[in-house]
Each structure stands twice: as C-alpha cells, then as structure tokens.
Amino acid sequence: MSNKEHNRLTVEKTWKLFMGGAFPRSESGRSLEVTDGEGRFKAHVCRSSRKDFRNAVEAAEKAAAGWQSRSGYNRGQILHRMAEMAECRKSEIVDTLMTTGQCSRREAIRETDHTIDRLICFAGWTDKVEQVLGCRNPVAGPYHNMSIPEPIGVVAVVAPKESALLGLTSMIAPALASGNVVVALVSEENPLPGLLLGEVCATSDVPAGVLNLLSGERAELLPHIATHRGLGAVVAGGLSRAQKTRLKEDGVDSLMRINPTMDTHDFEDDAFWTSPRALMPFIEVKTMWHPVGG
C-alpha cells in the first residue's frame, strides 16, 4: 500500500496479531504475503504458530470470568461501541476488503455496512439471550425450576474464505454477546479486514483478552484447535469435508462442542444470523431446581 501523495511517503501499517489487548507479532517471526488480484504485493501479515494460538487461548481464559460476569447491559454497550468505532473506520475497512481484489467497492461497502449492523444487532441481544433462550419449567412438583443459557467459555472461531469480515463478525458477535471469550482465526485469503477488527476492538472498551485475533494458515493451525483442552467450543466456516471431519475427531477427547458448518447459512441471511439460532452454538443450558414451600 505504498504510494506517494503530495510528494510525501505514506507511513505503512505493520499488521500484527491481536492478543490479550495488545498487538504482538507472531512468536515464530514468520509472515505471509497478501497480494492483490494480480499478484502484486500489498502487505505482510503474521503467520501464527501453535504457540501463538496457545498464548491467545491463555489470554482468553484470563478474561473469561470477568466478561461473563458483566451485565448484559454492559456487554451490550461495549458491542455497540465496537459498531461505533467500525463506523468511524468505515473507509479503512472498505479498503482492506478490496485489498485482494475479490470484491468491488460497492460490494465492500455493502459488506462493511452489513458487518456494522450485525454488531448493532448483537449489542441488543446481550440482555435478552436469557429471556428468549431460557424459561421457567412447569414441573409436576413443589419446585421452582428454571433453565438459563450460559456461555460455554472460551470459543474458537475459524473465519470462512468468503465474507472475510461479515462471516467472521457473524460468528464473533453472538459469541461475545452471550458472554463467551473468543480466539478467532481470520480469513487466510484476506486477513486484513479481520485484523482491523482488532483495532476496532482495542478502542471499544472490550476488556483485554475477550477477543483475540490470529492470522495465518488455516491448514497449519486447524490441528491444534480442537485438541486444546482450554476451549469449550469451536465454530467454523469454509472448511473442506476432510477438515470438518478432522476437527470433529480432534474434539472427541474432550467432547468439545464443535460446529464446523456455520457457513451452511449464508452470512448475508439476516433471518438466520440475527436470530437467536445464531446464539445457540455458543450457549450451554443450565437447569436449576429449588423446593418451594416447606
């Protein structure tokens, strides 16, 4: 992205990971090239290693209890703040979406708008999840009995190839809204918009470690995801059949909740992606009994 404007050399951004609220490089020191549609160099991004992934999970684990215990109202305001910050950086986001030459400006604007609106949608879900997905159960006895959705804990998100930003955000937003903390692998094909989301996050009062973003090679990192016992769930889009199977097999040992087919629902489909069904992969239902009377 180097170009000269008014005889002044542009200062280029170093694209880094987003982990524990900071922007480190990969511990491996490796990078990947991002090129435009014609193969011209556009940027370097970090090629995350297994160790980076583990570090990110560790950062997320530290943030989990705090994020879960915040009120829905508070989480909602933070997600709304993310949307505010994304709106401010809209032109920048549009540029990153166009980097790889896979979409036109019009399409990029559309995806950006859609992404911001999705954040707004889930900002509103935070204090409604329990009402809509929980209930009091009318048991046949003198007991108060209620089922409450709870966050699973640390969730890994694998972004799809297409909809580099909307796909990623559509999975991250419901995870965060329902009180989970996230380690996300941004789109390998176009990592820049996903990484930019980290910068949005960093200025949105999102507590450190609640969202962690890694760039790198999907095939390299996938085998280390579902085998990590610190995770409670994995959701993914854009995986091959073999990768889906492998991910599910990897998760068997800890019986991790794995949903590798999130892209079954088109990310542009608001009917699904703004509905409570989008929240369901990220919750666990807890049922509480207490005697009444006596």
Partner: peptide, 11 residues
Amino acid sequence: NTFNKFDAASP
C-alpha cells in the same frame, strides 16, 4: 436444597 429430581418438562 434438593437432589435427584426429574421431570419431563425439565431439561
């Protein structure tokens, strides 16, 4: 304050 209670309406 109870244990091992079950009901068809309770997940």
